[in-house]
């Protein structure tokens, strides 16, 4: 279940809280902070694909740490979106092996099809186009990631099909 954030009121669902507690139990009792990355992932999935400052403050509260400790971590790791994103975040690999197999063309194609540049949201707000570094799929490039799923061995035709399918969702 997705939830939205409102100012000063961030509430995880019961299922998410259970998952958070499960992760915290993996580390020594005095090392709760270890769970910060798993919890940020859960938070991002829970609150519309990004982690707002309010969400990060909530994570700090759960872990009994200062909010700055969460900000420091959330801004270090590239998977956490710090600004609102579209419904589907397209993370296209741009690194060497994928580039050799045509990632540049795929990115150009996406930019023209979505009418936005890398780092921006499409006009309809449905898609966010991001480029990312190597996703450990070098033999299956070019490829991209949407949420937890990899789409591999892509070309512009397959890409169009995928975007059509996602638009209908």
């Amino acid at each position: 279940m997705e939830q939205t954030t409102t100012q000063n009121e961030v509430q995880f669902s019961d299922a998410a809280m259970a998952e958070i507690r499960r992760y915290i139990s993996h580390y020594p009792a005095d090392r709760k902070k270890s769970a910060i990355l798993p919890i940020l992932h859960i938070a991002q999935a829970e609150f519309g694909g990004w982690v707002s400052p309010e969400v990060q403050d909530k994570v700090a509260e759960i872990l009994d740490i200062q909010p700055i400790e969460v900000y420091e971590v959330a801004t270090f790791y590239t998977m956490f979106n710090l600004k609102p994103v579209g419904k589907h975040v397209l993370e296209v690999c741009r690194t060497g092996p994928c580039m050799l197999r045509g990632a540049d063309h795929l990115i150009e194609h996406l930019e023209s099809r979505l009418g936005c540049h890398v780092g921006e949201n499409s006009a309809d707000g449905l898609f966010t186009l991001k480029t990312v570094e190597c996703l450990a799929a070098c033999g299956m490039g070019p490829m991209l990631q949407i949420r937890e799923k990899y789409y591999e061995n892509l070309d512009p035709q397959k890409m169009d099909q995928l975007l059509d399918d996602l638009s209908k969702e």
Partner: peptide, 10 residues
């Protein structure tokens, strides 16, 4: 044995 996810950092 536990699995721990990273956050995107080579």
């Amino acid at each position: 044995l536990h699995v721990h996810p990273g956050g995107g950092a080579y």
